[in-house]
Design a protein around this nucleic acid. Structure first.
Lengths: 143, 143
DNA sequence: TCCATCATGGATTTTAATGTCCATGATGCA
DNA sequence: TGCATCATGGACATTAAAATCCATGATGGA
């Protein structure tokens, strides 16, 4: 089945959209983020940790702490979040599953997929958090 | 991690590309298709069966039988194969995992993803087997 | 100091996808 | 008829992703 990104990544994007929407420089606790965006807390915490390591999220320790965005929402693209969670190379493997596929020895789908992929990545790269948030007054992420 | 389609679908496409390349109206046994395209036979057989049911592959029973394409390679798109194996709705679910997401109640990524998806599907739909095969003399699907 | 928070890592469970194996039956060619 | 093939479906094993739980430690505000 088709999947643009992992579940952990889906949760990260939801959390980021939430933080971007409420953000005024302040932080939110992991618990409140997870409740508001309806994501499983114990799983999401691990995702948040890796995002902190990647420099995409800032951890505020201590009482009244939590997480906040490191950069302004207009400087964070969807593609960045995906790569931060699923890895830099998530879109790189050969689409036909060949480990030997490359530009010099392409598989049958290689050039076709390369073109499609470029436009896909371009779209994801040119969409930042602030763009998404400004269309809606209220966060609309519900199961 | 990103995945355009399932493993079963990957194998189906590899098998179709092989059949399109050797095709002159003749059929190939399941065994020879799997060996040539380096796909696991016991798993692929089940995929072939569902493709027969879907009308994408013709089963030739009896001794010297096997499978052959139902339609000419220039009439079969990559998108069709994907949908035949992974289901018609494989690209439909909300990208943010919301079951309530639709055009009237969109999630935050809805319209952005809708656009990106349309161009993705268009590319997959406009690419047929014959296009891919004619670029290569020899089938190049190796692990 | 107390407590709520984040940080870290290990263990475990659940679920879905993937892959293997086997038994039964039908078909069509030599 | 004998055999190689496909058709079907069930049982099962393996693997990866997703989810849960727990224990320990550090931080900073009240």
């Amino acid at each position: 089945m088709f999947r643009l990104y992992s579940k952990g990544c889906e949760y990260a994007i939801r959390a980021f959209l939430y933080l971007a929407a409420v953000e005024n420089g302040s932080n939110k606790t992991a618990q409140s983020i997870c409740r508001k965006t309806k994501i499983p807390e114990s799983f999401a915490r691990k995702v948040f940790q890796s995002l902190v390591r990647g420099g995409y999220l800032e951890a505020v320790p201590g009482n009244g702490g939590g997480y906040r965005l490191c950069r302004k929402p207009d400087k964070v693209s969807i593609l960045e979040i995906i790569k931060a969670v699923d890895g830099e190379k998530t879109f790189e493997p050969c689409i036909l599953g060949s480990s030997k596929c490359n530009c010099r020895k392409p598989c049958l789908l290689h050039s076709t997929w390369e073109e499609t992929k470029q436009s896909l990545l371009l779209n994801l790269e040119s969409t930042c958090l602030s763009e998404l948030v400004e269309f809606y007054e209220e966060i609309e992420i519900k199961r």
